[in-house]
Design a protein around this nucleic acid. Structure first.
Length: 355
DNA sequence: AAAAGCCACAACCGCCTCCAG
DNA sequence: GCTGGAGGCGGTTGTGGCTTT
């Protein structure tokens, strides 16, 4: 009773496939089909087990496999499908023609998952991470019980989470779609920017740059969702996207965007900056301005990374606010977000985008 | 130039379900 | 109805290649 074992593990080759082995497998399947994988290796003259042949074919050699970088649409689909299906890679792959479950799984683990984590999103639940949200209570404790000092990183980490936790549902930061426009931007070589629904924030929430002049919707090219952006009151200081690589950030209590400018020849920098825009990244890269007393710009003090900020002083007075913003507390980040160039292999190159 | 660090991904491992025997 | 192999699937790891030091 029972069947012949799939393969005798003794003497069967393991490890990377050689071009010769690949060609044997391709030739055999093109002529005969794969049939039963158990018998295929012997018939094809391969010293591999059937399972290894099946994986090699389905994950790599199959002619309908789409190789190369995941597109914006594919990345968006993966995130959305994962939020519904979880780690059902085969089901996700079934909805992405030409992509294998293995490829999607790898892409998730090496790219998307890390980005979600860095932005405070639990990659399993697609919701804000509880451990980060709890920082708001820590901040309250600091404020009301023991005025203390902490460095820039600690302060920002707490303050940002406090502000965001007040408006979870509409917060860009907690919407995984935030990555979409980064990818879109990169895909189109800085010629378009799809901010997506996640930027559709209430009218009262305003993001500003140093020189509020142009709505950021003016910067958008094809693929933009202008109808969602028209009331967002997100501004930049130039009117052309090609000459306005965005490289700094403003935060409000429930919306955010990247704002600033640099030279046209820095399009790649622009892309990279967008691509890696994360709140948590910013904490390592920025200066902040804090109003001393009544909100007047002249009273701004600039803190450098690593500086110690008296938290009680900062939060007891209004955080930086400009223009016709709402009365919500704001934290204004004036300085540069460094680009984070993703390299092929090896460490990431991190250059300063500071002008 | 060499060593170390790091990343991406192909491939393997082990478990589960299905179904032939 | 039971057994155990095939196929499918998700998790994990090994390794080549690139960057940094």
């Amino acid at each position: 009773m029972g069947r012949v074992p799939c393969c005798d593990k003794n003497g069967l080759k393991k490890g990377p496939w050689t071009p010769e082995e690949d060609q044997k497998l391709i030739d055999y399947i093109q002529k005969h089909g794969h049939g039963t994988w158990r018998t295929l290796p012997k018939n094809a003259g391969l010293a591999r087990c059937g399972k290894s042949c099946r994986l090699r074919w389905t994950n790599y050699l199959r002619p309908d496999i789409k190789r190369g970088r995941f597109s914006f649409e594919e990345e968006e689909a993966i995130i959305q499908l994962h939020s519904v299906l979880g780690n059902k890679w085969s089901e996700i792959a079934a909805r992405l023609p030409g992509r294998t479950d293995n490829e999607i799984k790898n892409y998730w683990n090496t790219h998307i998952r890390k980005r979600l984590l860095r932005s405070g999103i639990d990659p399993v639940t697609h919701r804000p991470r509880i451990d980060l949200l709890n920082l708001s209570s820590i901040l309250n404790t600091v404020l009301f019980n023991q005025p203390a000092q902490m460095n820039t990183h600690e302060f920002l980490r707490i303050a940002v989470n406090l502000l965001q936790s007040q408006q979870l549902t509409s917060s860009l930061v907690y919407n995984p779609v935030q990555f979409n426009y980064a990818s879109q931007w990169q895909q189109n070589e800085a010629s378009s920017c799809n901010l997506g629904e996640s930027l559709a924030t209430p009218d009262s929430n305003v993001c500003y740059t140093n020189n509020n002049e142009q709505p950021i919707s003016n910067l958008l090219y094809e693929g933009s969702t202008s109808e969602l952006l028209s009331d967002n009151n997100v501004y930049s200081d130039h009117d052309s996207v090609l000459s306005t690589p965005v490289s700094s950030l403003s935060l409000t209590n429930n919306s955010s965007t990247i704002i600033n400018s640099s030279a046209e020849d820095e399009k790649d920098t622009y892309c990279s900056t967008y691509f890696d825009f994360q709140i948590s990244d910013l904490l390592d890269m920025i200066d902040i301005n804090v109003l001393e007393d009544d909100g007047a710009d002249t009273n701004l003090e600039t803190y450098e990374e690593g500086d110690v900020i008296p938290v009680s002083k900062v939060v007891s007075s209004p955080l930086t606010k400009q223009g016709n913003s709402s009365s919500s507390p704001q934290l204004k980040v004036n300085k540069v977000v460094e680009e984070d160039v993703v390299s092929k292999g090896g460490k990431k190159k991190r250059k300063t985008g500071e002008k």
